[in-house]
Amino acid sequence: MNISWKLIQPNLVEISWPKSISEEILHEQISLRNALIEQNQLIIYEIRMGYHVLSILFAKDINSLELDSIIKIAEKSTSRLPYQSIKKWIVPVCYDPNLAKDLNEFCRNKKIELKQLIQIHTSKEYLVHFYGFLPGFMYLGGLDERLYLPRKHKPDAAIPAGAVGIGGEQTGIYPMQSPGGWHIIGRSPLKFFNIKTNPPVVPAQGDFISFESVSISSYEKIAKDILLGKYIWENE
């Protein structure tokens, strides 16, 4: 795909794809990152991503020769990923107004039955584009447009960890308590950020997650298993 690049500061380069949210771009980003890490381990300090942008922070100011070689690698990036490496994770979610404060209001607003909301939200596979906003917050692609709803005008002061929300054209999970402007429609008992594990998150960029509706009692059982260290994330 067509890429462009820009040197922002003497040690920061940003590579851009056409402005869109797509699996193909994500795969090119991942393939570029892997190639860069393989070939330039020493001078690359950190790589960050957005939906159609990959930025490279270097350990030192780079010269034009080094820049040229980076651009050459970027131009060769391909959307072909080794498919066996892509996982599909199952995230249990309890869609219950006792655990999700905006659930009833959301249904009223969108004029749909709770059953229908759950059916739509759980029927999709969501692509993990990248992490941002909060430690462990996944930017997910793939929300059904029937569930689009603009963010709240006035953000809530404290949304609990595990809250599943919808904001605009996105759905996501709050990994820790935080202020936020999304409509909370469910709650997952899973831990989405754990500083005691390396890496501190489970799904990788390029993986998929899907939501599975669970009752309050199984929500509580899973929460207990997590506390006891007995829970293992399911994937297929």
Binding site: Y45, R48, F130, Y131, G132, P135, G136, P199, P200
Partner: peptide, 10 residues
């Protein structure tokens, strides 16, 4: 805290 921006860590 460097090296964890991939996971959303400032």
């Amino acid at each position: 805290r460097f090296g964890f921006a991939d996971y959303g860590v400032p």
